[in-house]
Amino acid sequence: MKEQSYAKHTKYQPLQHFVWLPLSVMLLLGTLTYFIYSMMKSRFMIENLLLLGIVVLAIIPGMLARMYAIRLQDRLIRTEEQLRYFMLTNKRLDSRITMQQLIALRFAQDDQFVELAERTIAENLSPATIKREVQTWRADHFRV
Rank of each mutant, 00 (worst) to 15 (best):
S24C: 10
G62Q: 03
L50N: 03
L49I: 04
Q13R: 15
R132N: 13
D111A: 11
K41D: 11
N124H: 10
A7R: 14
Q100G: 05
Q16R: 14
L64G: 00
I46H: 07
Y68S: 00
A122H: 09
F35Y: 09
K91Q: 15
L57T: 01
M67H: 06
D94P: 01
T31K: 00
A128F: 12
Q112G: 13
D110Y: 06
F35H: 01
F142N: 14
L21P: 07
Q109P: 05
N48W: 07
Y6S: 08
F35C: 00
R92Y: 10
M1S: 14
I97H: 05
L52M: 12
D110V: 12
M63I: 09
A69D: 07
S126M: 13
S24R: 02
R143E: 15
R78W: 01
A117P: 08
A139S: 15
I130V: 12
E118S: 03
Q82I: 08
P14H: 14
R84V: 07
T33S: 03
H141L: 15
Y85M: 05
D111V: 15
F107N: 06
K131W: 07
I46Q: 10
D111Y: 13
E123R: 02
L102G: 02
T10I: 13
P61M: 00
I103A: 08
R106N: 14
L76H: 05
S95R: 11
E133N: 11
A65N: 11
D140L: 07
A122M: 08
A117D: 08
I36P: 00
S5K: 13
L93W: 09
G62V: 02
F18P: 02
L49N: 05
T136E: 15
K131T: 13
V56I: 09
M26V: 11
R143G: 10
P127V: 08
S38E: 12
E81C: 07
Q112P: 02
T136F: 14
Q112V: 10
R138Y: 15
Q4P: 06
F142W: 15
H9D: 11
T33Q: 00
L50W: 03
M40G: 01
T10P: 06
H9M: 12
A139E: 15
L57N: 02
G62H: 03
P61W: 00
L125F: 06
A69N: 10
A122Y: 07
R96H: 04
N90S: 13
I121H: 02
Q112I: 10
I36Q: 00
M87H: 14
G53H: 03
P22D: 09
L21C: 04
L15T: 09
N48A: 05
L116C: 01
Q112L: 08
S38T: 12
T10V: 13
Y37M: 02
I121A: 01
H9Y: 15
F113G: 04
T89S: 11
L23Q: 03
I121D: 03
E81K: 06
K91W: 06
Q101T: 02
R43Q: 12
A69F: 14
F44Y: 13
M40P: 00
A108F: 04
W137M: 07
L93P: 05
M99I: 09
R78L: 04
I59V: 11
M63C: 04
M87L: 15
L72A: 01
V114I: 12
L28Y: 09
